[in-house]
Design a protein around this nucleic acid. Structure first.
Lengths: 339, 339
DNA sequence: CTGAAAGCGCTAACAA
DNA sequence: TTGTTAGCGCTTTCAG
């Protein structure tokens, strides 16, 4: 028969009694702090293992005024993008004593405030959160928390402490350059209608600005609500082309709907990239096996996670101006004419 | 100019002084506990808001011996499946005071132990973790923790407290029935080579057993390492059919590689579902917009998350026998012959 | 309805 | 190298 389930959680005192040394010595052994003789060390370790003791970080955190938690606050988990950022963070934190704790806002500012409040109440030693736009209340909480704040994904704005990301405005402009250089002129845009997705908004602004500089205007736009899927990409592509059949390029605010559009255009027998060019955003590797490779931009999300984590972990110093700018990479794939 | 960043985190005492009442009264207001006059309540709330006070749960947890955290331990975040389970958990926890804290094991038992140790050191009020297979050490920690343990995804085994999930063995057998009933006989299997993915293993076992009962054996198998992608699905499909061109059905251990295989078969001009049938597993809605809908099984992962969360939150009582069995749904799509 | 005292389990700081 | 003492910031409990 297996041992009975415990009724009372173990404390340091239990280990201390079992090992015949003071609680303080047990504490030192378990944290690898201070000098302890090999013999007592062994005794303590054995006792702790035998009992199945797990230290109480609640008590430890209160006593030491240090908590090895990093709050990570992101808009969504279903987007593929943020799990990857998380992957970068967690990989870089793995060889430190810090643990990430994740909160999800669903792109809602009020929920961001709530999540922030909940996380800060654990007195983490740092915060990594997406975007530079926060509510006044959120900003106040961050200021009052007096801990390092790393804002990720976006650098178009004023960071609280440090921002790690790409310029989405710039990324939009770069895509405009690619599109124009490839000779496309009648350009349509398909993206989410999300006032709170500031990064998508900035990309679109950058795109339009650069187009305007070259005397080109967006010929059509199609917005949608809710999550992105292949199906949605198909539907929107069909709709925009029904309205404006003469478009020669479609720019999608993400790869998922872009891929849906690509599949639809292929089924219609359209000549890609000559008759029409397509591009998405984010370089979702998931889609690598499609019949054609969608043109896209790698937003460097794993690197963003890593750099942000390195900074909170103190492996890397934050720059003077508070901005860590990464350079997005345009990946032409098969859906834009080669120059 | 914005207010300076704080240097010292605020405490109850700060609010107490600002509001001119005892710390105890502040505590009561902030937790909505005990009777407080509307007037003092208002004073306290105003003071707390003005200062930007965020309660310290580390201290609170220690004092009250209660921590409103639920540890959620899953194998992976890049799988699409687990973020959805998480979604279900988080949705159901939203109207309680509990917060999920997520740990990722990467399908490694030793890492599961480490994550478990880290999470239990926060003294959560419950644990939700994937699978019924745990190390001896992990089992010991869970026993010693003396908190509710909900094992999710799988019910083929002996739960510690409660298991919420589907029978993968049974799901495999059901798929065998569907395949045989549709008239396929030369069946190939493509799946990950993951000794630690017990659920995929049990599905395969269930499939083979049922096939054997009907006098059919798997005609070919192809295993792969690492993550699943469309590209991998293509490659493996090509490989298995090169070896065994006469296969008339391919069963994939997940939808992602299944979809890759589907795209490849379509490009080869194969007649689906007559010449060859295909099925995946998991009903990943992401893939909904493909040219044909892959046959698949909905493993009820959102429901699994919800039910598990309801039980830890005490919204629902755990059954006597510790097993909450959900029924997976087979979705024929377009890639299996209709009877 | 409000307040005072004690202590949660651990660690910082100091003493031996 | 080991032990002792005094809190960390809150909540429990009890008194008013």
């Amino acid at each position: 028969m297996s041992p009975k389930r415990a009724h009372r959680p173990l404390t340091l005192r239990d280990v201390s009694e079992a090992a015949g040394v003071s609680e303080m010595t047990v504490s030192r052994v378990l944290r690898n702090r201070g000098d302890v003789s090999a013999a007592t060390r062994e005794k303590v370790l054995t006792a702790a293992r035998t009992l199945g003791y797990v230290p109480n970080q609640i008590a430890g955190g209160l006593a030491s005024q240090r908590v090895n938690l990093v709050a990570v606050i992101i808009p969504s988990l279903s987007n593929m993008v943020f799990p990857e950022v998380l992957g970068g963070i967690s990989a870089e934190l793995d060889d430190t004593s810090l643990q990430p704790v994740v909160g999800v806002t669903n792109y809602s500012p009020s929920r961001e405030d709530q999540v922030l409040y909940d996380m800060l109440s654990w007195r983490p030693s740092g915060v990594i959160l997406a975007g530079l736009e926060h509510s006044k209340a959120g900003r106040a909480m961050l200021d009052a928390a007096a801990i390092p704040v790393i804002e990720i994904m976006d650098i178009d704005g004023e960071p609280i402490d440090t921002a790690v990301g790409i310029s989405h405005r710039r990324a939009g402009a770069d895509i405009a350059d690619e599109i124009l250089a490839a000779g496309y002129r009648r350009i349509g845009f398909i993206g989410t209608h999300m006032p709170e997705d500031h990064r998508a908004r900035k990309r679109l602004a950058g795109l339009e600005e650069r187009l305007a500089e070259q005397g080109v205007q967006l010929a059509a736009r199609e917005y949608y609500q809710g999550g992105s899927s292949l199906a949605k990409g198909r539907e929107l592509t069909q709709r925009i082309l029904a309205r404006q059949p003469d478009l020669d390029f479609l720019y999608y605010s993400n790869d998922m709907i872009g891929a849906g559009g690509l599949l639809w255009c292929m089924e219609q027998g359209m000549d890609i990239p000559n008759q029409i060019g397509l591009a998405g955003f984010n370089a979702v590797e998931l889609l690598d096996g499609l019949p054609m490779r969608l043109a896209t931009t790698d937003a460097r999300r794993i690197d963003i996670g890593r750099r942000a984590a390195r900074i909170v972990a103190g492996k890397e110093e934050a720059p003077e101006d508070g901005i860590v700018a990464l350079t997005p990479t345009f990946i032409p794939g098969d859906t834009i004419r080669r120059r």
